[in-house]
C-alpha cells in the first residue's frame, strides 16, 4: 500500500487502462494533479473520495469528455489521450456516467439497442443483460424517463454492457437509488467484476471495496492513497480523507 502517488503492483503488460500524470482543469481551475492510475486486465479498481475530489472529472478525462492538458491515457496498450469518446468505446471502454445515464425519450429496448451499436466484438447480447437485470425485461416498451432511479441505473449498466467492454467505467452507480435496491446492484457489480475489468467511482465505501480488489483515494485532485482493497479498508487515514 502506498501513501502517495506512484505505480501500482500491476504489471504494465497486464493493464487494460494506464493513466499517467493526468492533469485536467476547467478554465483556470485545475481539478486533477498528476494522477497515475492503472486497471489490470482481470481485476476491478475503485476510486474513492469525498464530493469535489475530482472522481467524476477523472472518469470524464479518461473517456475523452474532458480533455486533460497534460498526461496520458492508454487503453489496452494504445495511447488514446486525444481520442474521441466514441473511439474509446470501440477500443473496449464502456462508460456509465453519473447523471443522465439513459436516453429518457427512448424506450428501454431502444436504449439497449443503442448500447449494442458500439459493440466492437459483437458478443454482448440483450438476453445476457436481461438475465442480469430481469426487471428491465418487463419494461422493454416503456420510456426510460418513466423508470425508477434503480431501474435507470440497471438500464445504464445494461446499455454499457451491450458493447461488450473490456473495461467498464461506472460513475456512482448507486447514487440516488433506494437503499433496498443498492444491495441488488452491488450483487450484480460483484458478479460483473468476475467477468471483466471494472473501474468504479462510488460514494458507498463498503460497497466499492467489496466490488474492487484495488482502490485509489483522491483528495482535491491528488491520489493520496492506493493499495489492495483489504488494506485500504483498514487504513487509519481512510476516513480522514473521506469525511465530508
Amino acid at each position: 500500500m502506498k501513501q502517495s502517488e506512484g505505480s501500482t503492483s500491476h504489471g504494465r503488460d497486464d493493464r487494460v487502462l494506464d493513466v499517467r500524470g493526468l492533469c485536467t482543469r476547467y478554465g483556470t481551475s485545475q481539478v486533477l494533479f498528476n494522477v497515475d492510475l492503472h486497471v489490470p486486465s482481470h481485476g476491478s479498481v475503485a476510486v474513492l473520495g469525498r464530493n469535489g475530489a475530482g472522481k467524476t472529472t477523472l472518469l470524464k478525462s479518461i473517456v475523452g469528455e474532458v480533455k486533460p492538458f497534460r498526461g496520458a491515457v492508454a487503453v489496452r496498450g494504445r495511447e488514446c489521450t486525444a481520442a474521441h469518446t466514441e473511439q474509446l468505446v470501440r477500443l473496449g471502454l464502456g462508460y456509465v456516467p453519473q447523471d443522465q445515464a439513459v436516453f429518457g425519450g427512448l424506450t428501454v429496448a431502444e436504449n439497449l439497442r443503442v448500447g449494442a451499436m458500439g459493440a466492437p466484438r459483437g458478443s454482448g447480447t440483450m438476453d445476457q443483460v436481461l438475465a442480469m437485470f430481469p426487471k428491465l425485461g418487463r419494461r422493454l416498451s416503456q420510456r426510460a424517463a418513466t423508470l425508477s432511479g434503480g431501474e435507470r441505473k440497471m438500464l445504464a449498466i445494461g446499455r454499457a454492457l451491450l458493447s461488450d467492454p473490456a473495461l467498464l467505467l461506472l460513475d456512482e452507480p448507486t447514487e440516488g437509488v433506494w437503499i433496498a435496491v443498492v444491495e441488488e446492484i452491488a450483487e450484480r457489480l460483484i458478479a460483473l467484476a468476475q467477468t471483466r475489468s471494472v473501474l468504479l467511482v462510488e460514494q458507498h465505501v463498503d460497497l466499492a471495496l467489496r466490488v474492487a480488489d484495488y482502490a485509489y483515494v483522491l483528495e482535491r485532485g491528488h491520489i493520496v492513497l492506493h493499495g489492495p482493497s483489504d488494506e485500504i479498508r483498514h487504513h487509519p487515514d481512510l476516513y480522514r480523507y473521506l469525511a465530508p
Binding site: H84, E86, Y95, F103, R113, V114, S163
Partner: peptide
C-alpha cells in the same frame, strides 16, 4: 432504422450517445 435510432439517441443526449459509441459529429 438504425440511423434513425442514432439520430434520436443523439437528439436525446449527445454526450451519452458518444459514450455509446455513436459518432455524433
Amino acid at each position: 432504422t438504425r440511423v434513425g435510432l442514432q439520430v434520436r439517441a443523439t437528439l436525446d443526449n449527445a454526450s451519452l450517445a458518444r459514450a455509446s459509441g455513436i459518432a455524433t459529429g
